[in-house]
């Protein structure tokens, strides 16, 4: 009895340490964003701001840079990418999971291979291609390179494989076309997976700094992560209070979205355990 309590304590201690380490940067971010410059450089550290003047940082952040514009760009780009990814991944996953055609296994091998390649590797050829097409420094430059996700194809295929073949046969007898089968029969079985994938995709592209940095010159096209960095390079030097305020604003939509969707997210990624 006593050992099990000790074990539980130990477990919780480890988990709590991990949780604190994870949350600490965010706590500091919010804390600094609410402090005035004087408070930030004060030798006595305190988590909570001592005066309400720190709110100034937020006002200044919105005034200095078009933060709303960055957020809107983020929404446009992330939604665009996710829709394109779903549009490609669902039919591909159906073909890989349920249709018999020569070269299917080879194609699947390429999909798995694609999972292993980090996006930075093809960045230069993709950049050159966009330049040749004259698409650099546009929304297309932000969306097109991510429009096909091998991870999305792979995840949807894993879901589709669990759909009984008889269901597809029945749909064909009932007069559904292959396209209708994908949207009306297969997609509903994979909704939790699609939501989980959507969250991963949106978070990834919302926070992506690398690709917007090389693809975008015009500040008005900046995504949130890139926009935040404009606070660093601004001529007045780094104002940490405003930088952190901008970072908090940029992170908030994701945190809120995740809190709303977390049940589906967990369902979607643990689907293997539910048969």
């Amino acid at each position: 009895m006593r050992t099990s309590i000790a074990a539980a304590l130990f477990r919780h201690l480890i988990l709590a340490t991990g949780a604190v380490l994870m949350v600490l940067p965010f706590v500091l971010m919010v804390s600094i964003s609410l402090k005035t410059e004087g408070e930030i450089y004060h030798p006595q550290f305190s988590l909570l701001p001592t005066s309400p003047d720190g709110i100034e940082n937020y006002v200044a952040a919105f005034a200095m840079q078009p933060l709303w514009r960055y957020l809107l760009n983020g929404v446009l780009v992330c939604v665009g990418i996710f829709l394109a990814q779903a549009l490609f991944a669902l039919p591909c996953a159906y073909a890989l999971a349920k249709l018999r055609w020569p070269g299917r296994n080879l194609t699947m091998a390429f999909v798995l291979l694609g999972l292993l390649i980090p996006p930075q590797v093809p960045a230069v050829p993709v950049y050159i291609m966009l330049w040749k097409f004259g698409l650099l420094d546009s929304y297309a430059a932000l969306i097109l390179p991510s429009a096909i996700s091998v991870f999305g194809i792979f995840l949807m295929r894993q879901f589709f494989r669990t759909v009984p073949d008889d269901l597809i046969s029945a749909a064909r007898m009932d007069g559904l076309s292959e396209v209708a089968i994908v949207w009306r029969i297969m997609l509903p079985t994979a909704i939790p997976g699609l939501i989980a994938f959507g969250i991963l995709s949106v978070v990834g592209h919302w926070n992506d700094f690398f690709w917007p940095l090389i693809a975008i010159q015009t500040p008005e096209l900046a995504t949130p992560a890139l926009g935040v960095m404009f606070f660093v390079t601004a001529e007045a030097g780094t104002n940490f209070g405003r930088l952190m305020a901008a970072a908090t604003v940029v992170n908030a939509p994701l945190v809120i979205a995740f809190l709303i969707a977390q049940r589906w997210f967990i369902d979607g990624l643990t689907m293997s355990s539910m048969k």
Partner: peptide
């Protein structure tokens, strides 16, 4: 679908 036959499956295959 053009053969105009109905099939009932062992697993019922209901949507």
């Amino acid at each position: 679908k053009a053969r105009d036959l109905s099939m009932v499956f062992q697993s019922y295959a209901l949507y």
